[in-house]
């Protein structure tokens, strides 16, 4: 690693395709696994937002969580929970999500107390008060609600807090052990902005769209951040955003992505995955509400 010290700054450890396959094959219908992956990632994203964490930390949490799920695929136990088809993710998945937020916040500028995290997860997993529509069917999904939900529904008593905290720390230890302490995560966001400047296409609307794609890709059940390097993710997001906004990046004939060390094939796959995410989410939403 050290020999490629400069490269290590922009590259991630990846999961093997075998690991991803094992994860997906836990259930006959991969859709259940996919749905659970999506829900858990979404839960993590929401928790991060409620905890006022910057997207950088949230993204790290989600990636750590996904790494954990993938690496424990061969160990079973947790992963079987991914195959249970129910709306609210299993308790230990919630703990894993909370622990991944805790762990990445701890290593960032923005450490959080276990109490804050447990409170937020209590809110998010409360069927009455949650902001997540797969948990609370009345949820609007809007965080800045002028009418705060009734706190009775998500109050964490001192006793419950102790239990949750223990679960949080246990999950933290499990995550660290599963990852063999490899918590280093490199994000593609800054790379993407640099690439856009290099392409002389650095405009605010385009940048917003690129970042939106990158953040959405975090939720993809295809675990794009575990199978692709940051440079590939950045290039794919730029490509897709430029296509959507009909921004001409460079001459059509030029395979500009190769400058950033991304092959045509890899780019194609990523663009397809990122592009299809919208459809997947719409389908999921339908399955939550049942109509």
């Amino acid at each position: 690693m050290a020999r490629h010290a400069s490269l290590a700054i922009i590259s991630n450890s990846l999961a093997t395709s075998k690991q991803v396959l094992e994860l997906k094959n836990r259930d006959a219908t991969t859709s259940v696994v996919d749905a659970n992956l999506f829900k858990t990632s979404l839960l993590t994203q929401f928790a991060g937002l409620l905890l006022h964490l910057p997207q950088e930390v949230i993204a790290t949490s989600i990636i750590i969580l996904q790494r954990f799920l993938v690496s424990s695929a061969s160990i079973a136990t947790e992963i079987d929970l991914l195959t249970t088809s129910q709306l609210i993710p299993e308790a230990s998945l919630v703990s894993a999500s909370a622990a991944s937020v805790y762990l990445s916040a701890k290593q960032s500028f923005y450490p959080l107390s276990p109490r804050s995290i447990i409170n937020v997860y209590a809110l998010l997993t409360s069927p009455e008060a949650s902001l997540l529509s797969f948990i609370n069917s009345n949820a609007t999904g809007i965080i800045h609600s002028s009418e705060p939900p009734n706190s009775r529904n998500y109050h964490v008593s001192e006793g419950a807090y102790e239990t949750h905290r223990q679960a949080l720390f246990d999950a933290e230890s499990r995550i660290l052990a599963s990852l063999a302490f490899d918590t280093k995560v490199v994000l593609p966001h800054t790379l993407a902005l640099t690439y856009m400047q290099a392409l002389s296409a650095s405009t605010v609307p385009l940048a917003e769209r690129v970042l939106a794609h990158l953040n959405a890709a975090l939720l993809s059940p295809q675990l794009l951040y575990l199978t692709h390097q940051p440079n590939a993710l950045a290039v794919a997001a730029i490509y897709l955003a430029a296509r959507e906004q009909e921004v001409a990046l460079v001459d059509d004939e030029v395979a500009w992505w190769e400058v950033f060390d991304v092959g045509r094939e890899g780019l194609g796959f990523l663009v397809l995955s990122m592009g299809s995410l919208n459809g997947f989410v719409e389908a999921e939403k339908v399955s939550w509400t049942g109509n």
């Binding site: 290590a8 762990l103 701890k106 290593q107 720390f169 660290l176 302490f181 490899d182 918590t183």
Partner: peptide, 24 residues
């Protein structure tokens, strides 16, 4: 894990992270 309040010690995490990145 001395301090039950903070879970896995952050200092250990940092040390591990650094050591993982070093080879000499």
């Amino acid at each position: 894990v001395h301090n039950e309040k903070d879970g896995f010690p952050i200092t250990a995490l940092r040390e591990i992270k650094l050591l993982k990145a070093l080879r000499h």
